[in-house]
Structure formats: C-alpha cells, structure tokens
Design a protein around this nucleic acid. Structure first.
Lengths: 126, 126
DNA sequence: CAGCATCCTGCGTGATACTG
DNA sequence: CAGTATCACGCAGGATGCTG
C-alpha cells in the first residue's frame, strides 16, 4: 500500500525527499543504477567500492533499501524466476528523472567537501 | 591538503552529503535561511509552518542540527551578546552554494511526489 | 530568548545463521 | 544467488524542566 494516510500535509517537498532517500545506500544505489540494470549482488559489491574501510552490507539492510526504493517507485524489480535466482533492479522513469538531482548533489559534494575525490573524477564519472 | 584527518576514505560525495544533511531539519533550515539571516526562534517557528500536524521541535534537536550545520561550515552563528539573547544564523558562502542543490531537490519533489504542494508554489517560493 | 541537562523510546544499521 | 529470520545496539528524535 502506497500510503494510507501519509502525504502528511507537509507542503515541503524537501522533507518528503529526505524521507524517501533516508537510508545510507538509497542514493548510491540509484546512482549506480543510472548506467543500467544491476543484479542484487552487483549492487551489493558496487556499494563496497569507494568505501574502503567499509564492511559487508547486511543483506537485510540492502534488501530493505531496495524494497523501499521499489515502493517509492524509483526502481523496478525484475525477477527472472530462474533456479539460481536472478533478479535485476533498474531505474523507473521516475527514478531516472531523479538522476540529475543526484548528479547535482555529487558535483556539489566534490567541489565543496574537498575529499579524496578530485575534480577529474567528476567528469570521469559522467 | 586542507584536510587533516577527516575525509574517511569515502570516495563517494553522495555518502558524505547524506551524512552532512542527515537529520530531519537541516535541509529545511538551510532553505529557510536562503532569504536572509534568521533568529533561533524564527527558524523554529518556520519549521512548524507547512507541517500542520507537527509538534514542537525539541530545542535539543534543533540546537544539535544548528551546531552540526555550523560545524559543517554551511551556516554561521552570530551571537549579539545581548541581555535578552539574540542570535542569528545565516548561510555561509558554502551554504549559499548549496541552495541551488536544495532547489533542485525541491523542484523534483514537487513534480514527482505530487503532494499538496502545487506547481505555483514552486515559483512562489523562489 | 536561546539554549543546556536529563531521561526515554523507536528505528536504522550491523552481524550471524539459514533457505528456496 | 537472492534473499529472510533473529538478536543486539547505537543514536536520532521527542518530552520536560531549568538557566543566563
């Protein structure tokens, strides 16, 4: 069920946005999916890249994030129903429309957070 | 290297972004500050606007958010040192550079979250 | 007015083990 | 391979009272 009572008369899209992408991985998952569909395991390993000291992601957590994103209509789950399970996740149209926003976030982050990430990487990641 | 120690080897600006704006009010605070400095109480009451069913914001929470934003260099705290306390918060240059990003978020939210917020309000809020 | 001190609670996150 | 089931924990977030 999408929302029984929600749409709390917020009037503030920003708050809704925060709820929607709350969770450590949602934005990164979407960003990783922007280049095309990925399987569960690919998403998982993809989230480990770049985060050096990071431990494995608990399947429970990733699973929930994916479900939440699916429930928000940002990504789509395609189960191939094979014996060795194969499931792909891909951005919906709505999710794709969100990519530029993430891109804006990323670019700002690279510029102003002055991390180990260099400017060249910004364009490299495009 | 401007960075002493932080910069946990993330490599992912998005993750850093999420940490920085984690918390229910940070983005909204910054958005409210975009039009000029506000006092503590003004920020507080401003956060209640638009969120009808919302309760009062615990000072502890708001205080922490403001400190975090200050620590991130996004806002600046100016204490007038008066007897009835007067403190103003304003966006730093870095914080101002972030406003367009929030705006992108807002606009996307209005378009795709289809809330009570109407399109006219998008431009009205500019 | 602009907070700080204290207590309490729920949930997000992590770790581990198990299954179709 | 793609998850679910359990247990455990830290911390964000709320409530209340007090202060300079």
């Amino acid at each position: 069920m999408p929302n029984s009572k929600s749409t709390p008369p917020c009037g503030c899209p920003v708050a809704a946005f925060q709820k929607m992408i709350s969770g450590k991985y949602k934005l990164r998952i979407m960003w990783d999916l922007k280049d095309g569909p990925l399987r569960y395991g690919e998403i998982r390993s993809g989230l480990l890249r770049g985060a050096i000291g990071t431990k494995e992601i608990a399947p429970r957590v990733l699973s929930r994030e994916l479900k939440a994103l699916t429930g928000s209509g940002l990504i789509d789950r395609k189960d191939y129903g094979l014996v060795p399970p194969k499931v792909e996740y891909r951005l919906t149209r709505k999710g794709q429309s969100f990519v530029p926003v993430i891109d804006a976030i990323r670019k700002w982050g690279v510029r102003h957070l002055a991390q180990s990430t260099s400017v060249e990487q910004v364009e490299a990641a495009e």
